[in-house]
Design a binder for these strands. Structure first.
Length: 602
RNA sequence: GGGCCCGUGGCCUAGCCUGGAUAAGGCGCCAGCCUUCUAAGCUGGAUUUCAGGGGUUCGAAUCCCCUCGGGUCCGCCA
């Protein structure tokens, strides 16, 4: 067993060896500075060194330089490198192709040895608090904001795989006007005065769907009634003043709605480690602490009696550069409580990551500046996403222009079931239901996470419920195919090879005759750890679905061109079974990063 | 008025941070592949002024500037 197996990152090792060798050669040619290796078009190899920039300093044709370097690298001093790569100068490029025997001996054996832990990084001893969703508990989720929990949960899974210790938090607003409005509505509006619940509504028993009607009705009444608005203000004042009874009552109503919301997310495999209540920041004195410290800041000023920070010097521009942190009566604002929450969060963790809608960009920036003034060493990092909108425009609950997440889930499951029934009519209904569930739920997460966060998504049913091509079932199907082959092999008493077996095979003759599609599949399997790292550290979770798409596609090509069980040569059969097992492992692990199940049959 | 984000074949998306070899996938369209490990699959084909213009560079979808189109924000609200 060699070093790379121990860590399971064979490509990284090969790459480092290459960079070292290339740097040495360039140094001998009088060129210093870090070289950049890039990924060439597939037919050209696995890594490439473009020689244009060298041409300038060396005053020589780049094609000749490429040739030169190739010759130098062929020297016996670089025998280590030659174990990893085959070299070829092609025009102004020097291309490096990973040796197939190296790939087999290191990639496949790593995967077989580590199983589901392939691609798992060593623990980093870094504690991350990741906050996502934190939607006001006043009604059911609509898909306009569904990206938040999906991006957040996916990223949490990726960061954990990267060795971070992650705590996922939901910050619950129980001191705001929305919470008070909901609570007032529930306590003062009789059932008969709210919109009746459609008896066919599949969610008529969910608290978020039931209680939102009281919130909406209360909201409607407040708009035409100043006195009522004052009553809501009074509730808010009482809460901050420490009136326990009112606070508990508001919180109790929020909790009911929150239960319904949690249920929706939990169906999508999304759960939280901790719910932090906004009112707790007042109770534990952090809010007072924040206000006291900020008042002493050189950027603090007063407008009448209210305190604010003047942030123009920090590059904030626009109509108002003031960041208020108290009201005229000295009470806190939402932003103050948010600051307090972040301050205590940052005292506990090494990294704080927030998933926020793009409408929070300015606010997040102001928050960061204020936290700096509060003396926080660690500052929160934010990932912003654009909204999911409808073709008709923005989603709005009031204009009844809205698709609820529960509706989407419901519809997706129904459509998925119909698809299963159409494609696999022979299955029993229990099986159809199970597959429909896996496909239906997977599709929702997949279709949201596949798009980079800052790009707007226009919601269209036909796209959201697409089960072919760039979709979750495409990945799940490839996984099911792997399982099908392995099952059948097992039934026929063929064992998948062990890591040691595979290492031995790397020396065999048949490696020379390996099919392009086999080699390509191995190459992609090798990339998994790198892709997780880039997706996680760069906070770009959409890289994972892209990768899995490439992987599944490469597997399908392999499947089409390389018979496994029906093959005749025993060695090849064994080797391919190993390859299928490796693909199965990585697909399952990748799907898990996306919170999507990997069906064994479908 | 001022920020920030997005604009890639008919439609949707990746690539942009870190500039390189014919712009990569999917949907849809056309032509094929199920007596052989599940056709939610595979093979081949057609379709692109990478929003427009200028600049930097040996080289620009990628970097810089301007324009246009779309999103979003600028409350003693949350």
């Amino acid at each position: 067993m060699n070093e790379s197996n121990e860590f399971g990152f064979p490509i990284k090792k090969a790459r480092e060896s290459l960079e070292k060798a290339v740097n040495e050669v360039l140094g001998s040619l009088g060129c210093t500075g870090a070289v950049t290796l890039e990924k060439p078009p597939r037919e050209m190899g696995d890594l490439a060194l473009p020689c244009f920039t060298l041409a300038k300093t060396m005053r020589k044709n780049p094609a000749l330089i490429a040739k030169d370097i190739e010759t130098k690298l062929a020297d016996h001093r670089f025998s280590d490198l030659q174990k990893f790569f085959e070299l070829e100068a092609k025009g102004p490029y020097l291309n490096f192709t990973l040796r197939t025997d190296y790939l087999i001996a290191n990639v496949l054996s790593s995967i077989l040895r580590k199983g589901a832990n392939y691609g798992t990084f060593p623990l980093r001893n870094e504690f991350v608090i990741l906050e996502h969703t934190s939607a006001n508990p006043n009604g059911p989720f609509h898909v306009g904001r569904a990206r938040n929990p999906i991006i957040g949960d996916t990223l949490a899974r990726i960061l954990r795989k990267l060795g971070f210790t992650v705590e996922v938090q939901y910050w619950v607003n129980d001191m705001g006007r929305q919470a008070a409005t909901l609570s007032w509505g529930k306590d003062n509006i009789p059932d008969s005065s709210v919109a009746p619940m459609d008896p066919d509504n599949p969610f008529k028993d969910k608290n978020d769907h039931r209680l939102v009607r009281f919130y909406q009705e209360a909201h409607r009444r407040i708009e035409n009634d100043e006195k009522l608005a004052g009553e809501i203000d009074r509730i808010l004042y009482e809460i901050e003043d420490g009136n326990d009874e009112i606070k508990q009552n508001v919180r109790a109503n929020s909790i009911k709605v929150l239960e319904g919301m949690k249920e929706s997310l939990s169906r999508l495999n999304i759960n939280f480690d901790k719910f932090v209540w906004e009112s707790a920041t007042v109770e534990d004195g952090t809010v007072t602490e924040v206000i006291d410290i900020l008042k002493r800041s050189e950027y603090a000023h007063q407008d009448q009696e209210a305190w604010y920070l003047e942030l123009e010097e920090f590059g904030i521009s626009g109509r108002s550069t003031r960041f208020y942190f108290t009201r005229g009566d000295g009470t806190s604002l939402y932003t103050t409580r948010d600051l307090a929450y972040h301050l205590s969060k940052l005292r506990q963790c090494d990294r704080a990551v927030n998933i926020l809608g793009e409408d929070h960009k300015l606010q997040a920036n102001q928050l960061k500046i204020a936290l700096g003034l509060l003396g926080s060493k660690v500052l929160p990092e934010s990932i912003f996403y654009s909204f999911v909108s409808l073709a008709e425009g923005k989603m709005s609950t009031r204009k009844a222009q809205v698709v609820y997440l529960d509706d989407l889930i419901h519809e997706s499951l129904q459509r998925a079931y119909e698809e299963v029934a159409r494609r696999r009519p022979m299955l029993d209904s229990e099986q159809k239901k199970r597959i429909g569930l896996e496909v239906g739920l997977g599709s929702i997460r997949y279709n949201i996470i596949r798009v980079q966060a800052d790009k707007r998504i226009v919601f269209r049913w036909e796209e959201a419920l697409n089960f072919e091509g760039d979709s979750s079932p495409f990945l799940q199907y490839a996984h099911a195919r792997c399982c099908g082959i392995l099952d059948k092999a097992n039934y026929q008493n063929y064992e998948t090879p062990s890591a040691d077996d595979v290492e031995k095979m790397a020396g065999d003759d048949f490696v020379m005759g390996i099919h392009d599609n086999e080699r390509n599949l191995i190459r992609i399997l090798a990339d998994f750890p790198d892709r997780i790292e880039v997706a996680g550290l760069g906070y770009r979770p959409h890289f994972i679905p892209k990768y899995l798409q490439d992987l599944a596609s490469a597997f399908n090509n392999f499947y089409q061109s390389c018979p496994v069980i029906s093959g005749t040569d025993e060695n090849i059969k064994r080797f391919r079974l190993g390859l299928v097992e490796c693909t199965r492992i990585v697909l399952a692990e990748g799907l898990d990063l996306l919170g999507i199940t990997a069906p064994e049959s479908m």
